[in-house]
Design a protein around this nucleic acid. Structure first.
Lengths: 342, 342
DNA sequence: CTGAAAGCGCTTACAG
DNA sequence: CTGAAAGCGCTTACAG
């Protein structure tokens, strides 16, 4: 049904080599034969079979992206950026969720791609090792890891979290709690670390009861905040490991009849647009998720072209997005909308 | 570097045909040679090259999914469901965004897949035609279209929207406005249609000024609601084409100093989890997005296996998720959280 | 049960 | 500039 290079060659009365040359544009061909081939290509609506090209060229022009789970806007933005960037370079994108993935499934996917991007979860360590051992160009959405030849692309989680805590301290809060992300998230680890360091630098003792575990979910934010508010001495401010947790925490505060930020301040992380549209608008740390996806793809493409360079790490800046939930004065309506667009 | 079938054959002292047979399991092989081959496979860590298999078998065991834009949780859930289902069947998933996509890019992607799933946007009409013309198994995230041999998988947008309007009418509201989704969304069209029909059935004249265009975004919800509230006679209730619009509308109402739902009721569409964590919790129409992704994949796989069957359409039920923004009495905290889990 | 061979649809040295 | 041929790594009739 679909025309192959043989059909075109026959119709244009040339060899398949010549067809390949004019279609790829990689070699000189007489203008006359070129025209004849192009006409045949057009008439037969010929398009080279990418699978056959993949086999011949030993390159699929496809990249694989492994994300923990496609269930929130976070992964969507990363995939969106990655796909856009890949497309700009003539590449396609294969996606897979980390949860319940076997190494075999993973390697089957990777075998279809020229390289792979792995999420910053500790639970993909096995996959990372397998990919690198195979010599597959690999970038991790996280920091460089000693001894592993994979590049890293990551937001400045530590710096962002630090800025958030700093901001809360400037508000005069001293009793600052933290609802963490999952232990398996390296990003959550960095944010937690920044939280601890910031308190210490300001001579505020770390209280165990102010540290509650969350899972990057509304529900865990709700539950975590409830526990904090049940404490004999509840915190004045809560730094949440992501915006979903923060929204859950806000609802919990309301359920306890507490005003946010009047009675308890809340800060999130991610800078999701939705945070600008809740009441009070959520102060949060913006990280450029789409850009992370794009840079990850660019890095991977660079790595594919330069297999022998030393591992490279790119840290993208985060930015404190000050809205209302931290206790800052009400922004005008216009400002809230502007914040949302950021 | 990576072992091929030839390496295994040599090591096991058999032909590549035999290796292929034991690895695929498609044919009888002596237990003894089988063991020898398996040992070689193991020692060389051999895995068949899926690209070569794709060429030989004329099947890539890969599916393509085209979504308007990966920028919200909506696309994430569809991709998530699709990937999970594809994996369950040993398939991989290639993704691409519709925006700025050329037919050529699209067909290059499709050539790597055994079939394609297309979003329910009118702007992919060209792609749909191209895929079907090529004989590519195709499913659309929308209703069957006359004359087009593609299957359809879609939520009951009409029924869901109808239920939402009905609910608002039962609250006693008569001045009900609608902020639509983009014209290009068939789902938005269905919801709009249900809105109009429901009003008519209840003898409520349609007011042009109560119909404002949105784009499935917080921002358009904010802007649309502002326009509605500027009206000499603002609506008592607003049905929003999706939850993002609804959140934007809620913030606008607050900016106007209006109580939701006391002074203006708001209902959304999608049933996103976040809606359960805003104040007031958003009443909305739940649609099973992950399931839509899964069913789309199942349908596509069925179509690949049965190329000559008549086009099939699957309509998945939607469900009104009653929370607070419609004016229903405050649910207990537990209920709000339960609603979130739904 | 097993092997030799053809075929899947390309690309690209190698000759001419 | 152009063609014949080998090669990419598999699968699967076809013989034996």
């Amino acid at each position: 049904m679909k025309a192959t290079i043989y059909d075109v060659a026959k119709r244009a009365q040339v060899s398949i080599a010549t067809v390949s040359r004019v279609v790829s544009g990689h070699a000189r061909v007489t203008e006359e034969t070129r025209a004849r081939v192009l006409e045949a290509v057009h008439e037969l609506n010929y398009r080279p079979n990418p699978v056959a090209q993949g086999l011949a060229l030993q390159s699929t022009r496809t990249l694989a992206l492994i994300i923990d789970r496609f269930d929130q806007v976070y992964p969507a933005l990363i995939v969106g950026g990655a796909e856009a960037e890949a497309r700009d370079h003539g590449y396609h994108l294969l996606v897979q969720q980390l949860s319940d993935l076997s190494v075999d499934d993973f390697l089957r996917l990777v075998a279809r791609a020229d390289g792979v991007i792995l999420s910053g979860s500790t639970s993909n360590q096995e996959f990372l090792q397998a990919a690198v051992a195979q010599g597959t160009p690999t970038v991790v959405l996280g920091h460089l890891e000693p001894g592993i030849r994979a590049d890293g692309v990551v937001a400045d989680n530590y710096g962002g979290a630090q800025a958030a805590i700093q901001h809360l301290l400037e508000h005069g809060y001293r009793r600052i709690a933290h609802i963490t992300g999952p232990d398996s998230s390296r990003h959550a680890q960095a944010r937690l670390c920044a939280y601890k360091d910031a308190l210490q630098e300001n001579n505020i003792p770390l209280r165990e009861e102010y540290l509650v575990k969350g899972t990057y979910s509304h529900e865990s934010g709700y539950a975590g905040m409830s526990r904090l508010l049940d404490l004999p001495e509840p915190p004045e401010a809560v730094f949440c490991a992501d915006d979903l947790i923060a929204l859950g925490a806000m609802l919990a505060a309301e359920a306890y009849g507490l005003d946010v930020p009047g009675q308890v301040a809340i800060v999130g992380f991610d800078g999701l647009e939705t945070g600008a549209y809740v009441n009070p608008p959520l102060t949060t740390v913006y990280q450029p998720l789409e850009e992370i996806g794009r840079v990850a793809v660019r890095t991977l493409l660079w790595r594919i072209a330069n297999p022998n360079e030393e591992p490279r790490e790119t840290v993208l800046p985060t930015r404190l997005l000050i809205r209302r939930s931290c206790g800052c004065p009400a922004a005008a309506r216009a400002a809230a909308v502007r914040g949302a667009a950021a």
